[in-house]
Write a protein that binds this DNA or RNA. Structure first.
Length: 327
DNA sequence: AAGTCGTGCAACCGCGCCCCA
DNA sequence: GTGGGGCGCGGTTGCACGACT
């Protein structure tokens, strides 16, 4: 079945010949492509407009980058996919010279397999269930220099000495001065440009640019730097206000060794943050709160990632589109 | 050398959105 | 309000080619 747009025409399908490429290229370079449906007719091609458009976008466009993806591009794809999912066109916008088709193919042929081999679900970027039970997970510093990922998870060999896990925390590099000596709470105004560090009583102490927070996002979970009482990720997008809060009182290697851990995740809808970042946390009594507790000797930090990631992903993808993803 | 299998990628397909008459 | 055309997007297919037996 042909495309609706070209059902009346004699349509050739399949691979493009060099002659067809030449015709299309010459026509578009001369006339542009105001209407794809009329391109084949005027260019002398027996193709449908849709096919011409695809050929131009994916192959003939002069600004296309050739060759294999770099490690940096790969990491960008993974990072954005973690948030946006299979929105290849959106992802491709952040990779100059790459097309959505190219990104999609690269994902399906390479990245997907790589993530699976690492025990990660390529759709959710969380540990596959088969790995979740058999291994304790650590949240380690983000080793990749070009990544804005909040966490990188690494599997912890079940019977390995616990020091292996702790080591991850204790060898983190020193944080920048404005994040060290922290108050006990960080509020990340995730989808705006300011992030705020709050004191114990919720008063804003310091506003941080979003980029700075993200650059140092790994610090949030580094007990070497601090021992925050909560990590909050909030979105104040017009009428939709939400906060994800992770109480991580004892989020330290020391306590991990002690075994019993409590992670409380509070999802609080309806909270508002004014534009100065002040927290009016008592304002709303009707908040939805979800608490999850663990009493396991192996605190599953992988779950933390799941929670955070799902918050990022599920709450409002429209916000994601408006993110300042212009690296 | 011939057949089989796996992989990468170009191209197609169907759906949904937007615009306009 | 609605129906049709155009376009963009994500999922899928199928071919070409190299590796392997």
């Amino acid at each position: 079945m042909g495309h609706r747009c070209c059902s009346k025409q004699k349509i050739k399908r399949g691979l493009w010949s060099p002659e067809e490429d030449e015709k299309l290229l010459r026509y578009i370079n001369t006339h542009g492509h105001k209407s794809w449906s009329s391109v084949p007719k005027f260019a002398g091609l027996q193709r449908c407009g849709k096919s011409c458009r695809l050929r131009w976008i994916n192959y003939l466009r002069p600004d296309l980058k050739r060759g294999s993806f770099t490690a940096e591009e790969e990491q960008i794809i993974i990072d954005i996919h973690r948030i946006l999912g299979n929105r290849w066109a959106q992802i491709a916008k952040h990779l100059p010279g790459r097309t959505d088709n190219e990104v999609k193919n690269f994902w399906n042929s390479c990245i997907k397999k790589k993530l699976i081999s690492q025990g990660l679900d390529p759709q959710t970027h969380t540990l596959l269930s088969s790995h979740r039970r058999s291994s304790a997970c650590t949240i380690s510093n983000n080793i990749h220099q070009n990544s804005n990922s909040i966490f990188i998870m690494s599997s912890h060999i079940p019977n390995a000495p616990f020091e292996t896990t702790c080591q991850t925390f204790s060898t983190l590099p020193k944080p920048p001065p404005n994040i060290v000596q922290t108050p006990s709470s960080i509020v990340s105004s995730e989808f705006q440009t300011l992030s705020t560090i709050l004191s114990d009583d919720g008063e804003p102490l310091q506003h941080l640019p979003y980029e700075l927070l993200m650059e140092n996002a790994t610090n949030i979970c580094s007990p070497t730097y601090m021992n925050p009482s909560a990590v909050e990720l909030c979105n104040d997008d017009n009428n939709v206000n939400w906060v994800s809060r992770l109480n991580v009182h004892d989020f330290s290697a020391q306590t991990l060794e002690e075994g019993a851990q409590v992670l409380q995740v509070q999802q609080e809808k309806g909270k508002t943050f004014d534009d100065k970042g002040s927290d009016v946390r008592e304002a709303n009594k009707g908040n939805l709160e979800t608490s999850v507790s663990f009493e396991s000797s192996n605190f599953d930090l992988g779950f933390l990632e799941s929670v955070l990631t799902s918050e990022f992903i599920s709450h409002d993808l429209n916000c994601m589109d408006e993110l300042a993803w212009n690296f």
